[in-house]
């Protein structure tokens, strides 16, 4: 992550100095930080809402049922996830329904629990890496947000993309899961 951050920042600043001058570079740096604050504030609302809802889901015993359903998959992919299985289940379920905003809080919650149980703090566990990889390939059964966006631009067939999205995300998820297994073993 350090490398990515360094590269983006350095290349961006140096190019910006040549193309647009120091003042514009500074403006876009500060602008980025300001977007972070706006994003964080607007995310805070969604975050508290979904986490609160998860409290209700947990109290009614639904996550237990859902993780039970997903248990074979979870045990196979997230062997050292421990108490984070519940949050991982919710993260994967929200992702599959195309609710990116709901998936993030559950993902972060899962990371928090896994790090608390981590025998080597600061070093990613197998389950953490798998969680991110599976999030990257992003199996999507129903891209809710995307369809809403297409609708808002007056598409005649907003749902025309459901099949190709499903197929391509299924293929890449299968590939990713296979790669994950290889990495866990080695």
């Amino acid at each position: 992550m350090d490398t990515v951050f360094f590269l983006l920042l350095c290349v961006g600043i140096v190019t910006g100095l040549f193309t647009r001058g120091g003042e514009a570079v500074l403006a876009s740096l500060i602008g980025g930080a300001q977007t972070a604050v706006t994003n964080c504030v607007s995310m805070a609302g969604a975050y508290l809402f979904w986490m609160g809802l998860m409290g209700v889901v947990r109290a009614s015993g639904l996550t237990g049922a859902l993780s039970h359903l997903l248990r074979p998959v979870l045990r196979w992919l997230f062997r050292d996830a421990g108490g984070a299985k519940e949050a991982i289940t919710m993260n994967l379920a929200s992702n599959m329904l195309g609710l990116g905003n709901a998936a993030t809080p559950y993902g972060l919650e899962a990371m928090r629990i896994m790090e608390a149980e981590n025998p080597r703090p600061g070093v990613a566990t197998d389950s953490m890496c798998v969680l991110l990889a599976v999030n990257a390939s992003c199996l999507e059964l129903f891209p809710a947000t995307l369809i809403a966006l297409r609708q808002s631009f007056g598409s005649a067939h907003p749902a025309a993309v459901v099949m190709p999205v499903l197929l391509s995300s299924a293929c890449s998820t299968l590939l990713t899961v296979a790669l994950c297994r290889l990495c866990i073993r080695s």
Partner: peptide
């Protein structure tokens, strides 16, 4: 944002 705005 700096990577995008700079034209990189």
């Amino acid at each position: 944002s700096v990577f995008r705005d700079s034209g990189a």
